[in-house]
Amino acid sequence: MNDVSRRIREKARELFATGRIDAFLGYEPGSLPLRARPCLIQAGDEDRERRVGGLVWDSFCANNLAVFLPKLFEQDPGARGKAQAPKPRLGMVVKGCDLRSVTALVREKQAPRGNLLLIGVPCAGMVDTGAVEERLAGDEVLSASEGEGGKLLVRARDGRELTLFREEVLQACCRECRFPGPEAVDLLIEGPSRKPAEGVYERIRAFEARTAEERWEAFRREIGKCIRCGACRQACPTCYCKECFAEQTDPRWIGAGTELSDAMIFHLVRIFHQAGRCVECDACLRACPMGVDLRTFRGKIVKEVEELFHYLPGFSLEEAPPLSTFKEGDGEGFITEP
């Protein structure tokens, strides 16, 4: 067990013992290799001590934990006007992307900052399960463990043992991460971290440089894979509308099926709704069962918001979300002059 996991357990134990939190959100080992799963421990759980002892921090904690916050702090609509049950005080492990999403949710009043006890963990990037499987040429990963010096020991079903460097099999979003170290948290755990990436929009610029027909073809091909399962939306921390526009029935904006036009509008509007809120954690991409290249299209909105409005969702609670405000001097280059 690594030092960071040990510190997380110690801290969770201490917070429960001193009664400072009602619940703790962290990671535990998943039932499959190369996976850690989110784990919510309640103060009243019978096996609380055992579960706290099972908390981990490793290279597989890719899930964005912020996705659980809106539901945890949801008001009971049936109790409107009556006394609401007190909102839980939550201890929570956050890496850079989690914290940026938490910040967005706090600003949007989906989670009260006062009820959160954020335990920041510097992130060295998370392993891309698919990239590891690719190295095994389609064979199943039987077990995986982390060794010294950024090594990853993988055993395949056919008995092969592979030593990979985690740096080689990192998620693309981690390589491009500009916020690997959380800031303004309640408690920061020391640990290995990445350097903030530079030149992160190269991929988007390369796509922009293609012809309109090529771009349309790529968009059509990718969205054509979509089966409209909604996994991208469910996994996204900043997609929390109780009624999504895609499922509204009065008016019914778009069909629920896999019709290409409906799927395109679903994705375009979902991407649009992420303007100034998307932290590029790639939760949507990991959740997608069809391997739709959502990064290429979603990345555009992040880039545009930064270039047009000089805004990048970070750790600040003060800045207004870019689409709820304006500047007199905002660009007008797109306006048609007769």
Binding site: F207, E208, A212, E213, E214, R215, W216, E217, A218, F219, M264, L268, I271, F272, A275, F297, K300, I301, E304, V305, L308, L323, F334
Partner: peptide, 10 residues
């Protein structure tokens, strides 16, 4: 934003 997003997808 909408204008540049639509143009981006072709």
């Amino acid at each position: 934003l909408l204008k540049s997003l639509l143009s981006y997808v072709g």
